[in-house]
Computed example of a mutant assay.
Amino acid sequence: MHKDNWIDLLQDADTGIQSLRAHFKGHAYDPHWHDSYLVGFTESGVQQFRCRGERHISTAGKVFFLEPGDIHDGDAPTEGGFTYRMLYLDAPWLEREIATLFEEAPANCQLGVPQLLFDDPLLVRRIDEAFQAVHAADLKIVRQSAIDDLLDGLTRRLQWRQRSALQPQLPLVAQRARDYLHANLTQDIGLDDLARACGCDRFRLTRAFKLAFGLPPHAYLIQLRLARARQLLGRGMAPADVAADLGFADQSHLGRWFRRAYGVTPAYYRKRCSQLPD
């Protein structure tokens, strides 16, 4: 990591919301995804990321909003780098909270984010106020009020879409492979094992998978393990135990991948999110 890069991360015990403020110069992080909704804004500089097959440029005051599973990277294309603040919103929590704001939420639906990057000064203010309330561990009533204002602002940027196990636009073989990886994420899976489970050869499988999900199967499996690692570390599990449970060779192997994806060590993440000592 660049010597001038820094990250300040905390987790709210009541809601599970994580608040992050960070500064990066040069390369920020490798392609990865989260199982949370991400909403934030660029404070200063130029923030560049690839997501959903496009390159996005965020400058000061722009809002970015990603849904769970959106694979994205990050870097600073200009000399001074960029600073941003962001909230990670747990998916089941957000869907539950948003549903209470609608008189009748549609059945068997999930929340989607149609637009990743946009100008919305009012939403920037609401993100900032929610961030400050959560990050400073303000009074519960202050935090809840700021979060409710944020949720109210997000409703215009979200849409309900039908929840479906199958996505007709994606190759069936890729969806089968994804489901197999989710079901066996701690196992030492080979490409031949995956191809046999999907009923095709491994070359066709790898091509279809990368086209569908933007990552080859091995990288997707690592991202699955890292997403699970975040959950376990946030509950206070020791990094060495997390590495062993999730099939990483050792703690340093987990640490290398974790830093490349999130910019912090597993130990730092555990300490800031679980509030437990090292």
Rank of each mutant, 00 (worst) to 15 (best):
residue 270 R to Q: 12
residue 27 H to P: 01
residue 235 R to V: 06
residue 128 D to E: 10
residue 37 Y to Q: 07
residue 17 I to E: 01
residue 170 L to G: 04
residue 110 Q to W: 09
residue 78 T to E: 15
residue 199 G to V: 01
residue 129 E to V: 00
residue 68 P to G: 08
residue 49 F to Q: 12
residue 75 D to G: 06
residue 163 R to F: 14
residue 218 H to Q: 15
residue 147 I to R: 00
residue 201 D to C: 09
residue 237 M to I: 08
residue 95 E to Q: 15
residue 103 E to A: 10
residue 65 F to S: 08
residue 23 H to Q: 07
residue 106 P to I: 11
residue 272 R to Y: 03
residue 65 F to C: 12
residue 261 A to Y: 07
residue 155 T to P: 01
residue 191 L to G: 14
residue 254 L to Q: 03
residue 231 Q to S: 11
residue 77 P to H: 05
residue 233 L to S: 03
residue 129 E to D: 12
residue 253 H to C: 03
residue 29 Y to A: 02
residue 34 H to A: 01
residue 105 A to P: 15
residue 81 G to K: 02
residue 260 R to N: 10
residue 95 E to T: 10
residue 22 A to K: 03
residue 252 S to G: 05
residue 244 A to D: 09
residue 37 Y to S: 06
residue 242 V to D: 01
residue 213 F to E: 10
residue 262 Y to H: 11
residue 54 E to Y: 13
residue 74 G to I: 07
residue 238 A to N: 09
residue 81 G to L: 05
residue 22 A to L: 10
residue 52 R to N: 14
residue 143 R to C: 03
residue 256 R to Q: 07
residue 57 I to Y: 07
residue 135 H to M: 08
residue 265 T to K: 06
residue 153 G to Y: 12
residue 221 L to Q: 14
residue 82 F to T: 03
residue 199 G to I: 00
residue 243 A to Y: 04
residue 222 I to L: 09
residue 109 C to E: 05
residue 225 R to C: 00
residue 2 H to Y: 02
residue 218 H to D: 13
residue 79 E to F: 01
residue 263 G to S: 02
residue 116 L to N: 09
residue 24 F to Q: 04
residue 251 Q to S: 08
residue 269 Y to S: 08
residue 205 L to K: 09
residue 220 Y to H: 14
residue 66 L to C: 12
residue 76 A to S: 14
residue 266 P to M: 07
residue 31 P to R: 13
residue 11 Q to H: 05
residue 229 A to R: 04
residue 54 E to I: 02
residue 267 A to Q: 13
residue 90 D to S: 14
residue 1 M to C: 02
residue 119 D to S: 14
residue 153 G to R: 07
residue 158 L to Q: 13
residue 201 D to G: 12
residue 198 C to F: 09
residue 201 D to N: 15
residue 181 L to D: 00
residue 273 C to S: 09
residue 238 A to Q: 15
residue 49 F to C: 10
residue 112 G to W: 00
residue 132 Q to A: 09
residue 213 F to M: 07
residue 43 E to Y: 00
residue 68 P to C: 10
residue 45 G to M: 02
residue 252 S to K: 11
residue 93 W to H: 09
residue 207 R to P: 00
residue 121 P to G: 08
residue 124 V to R: 10
residue 116 L to W: 11
residue 184 N to S: 04
residue 199 G to R: 03
residue 111 L to P: 14
residue 12 D to T: 04
residue 95 E to W: 06
residue 45 G to V: 03
residue 191 L to M: 15
residue 101 L to I: 10
residue 253 H to V: 01
residue 79 E to D: 09
residue 35 D to H: 12
residue 126 R to Y: 08
residue 153 G to E: 05
residue 107 A to D: 11
residue 180 Y to I: 04
residue 80 G to L: 07
residue 3 K to N: 09
residue 56 H to C: 10
residue 204 R to H: 14
residue 227 A to D: 13
residue 221 L to N: 05
residue 81 G to M: 03
residue 137 A to H: 11
residue 236 G to I: 07
residue 181 L to S: 00
residue 93 W to M: 08
residue 144 Q to P: 02
residue 108 N to K: 11
residue 106 P to L: 13
residue 137 A to Y: 04
residue 250 D to R: 03
residue 262 Y to W: 08
residue 165 A to C: 02
residue 164 S to T: 13
residue 151 L to N: 07
residue 89 L to A: 04
residue 15 T to S: 14
residue 61 G to Y: 03
residue 109 C to R: 02
residue 234 G to L: 10
residue 167 Q to M: 09
residue 28 A to Y: 00
residue 124 V to C: 15
residue 171 P to M: 06
residue 164 S to R: 13
residue 273 C to I: 03
residue 92 P to I: 05
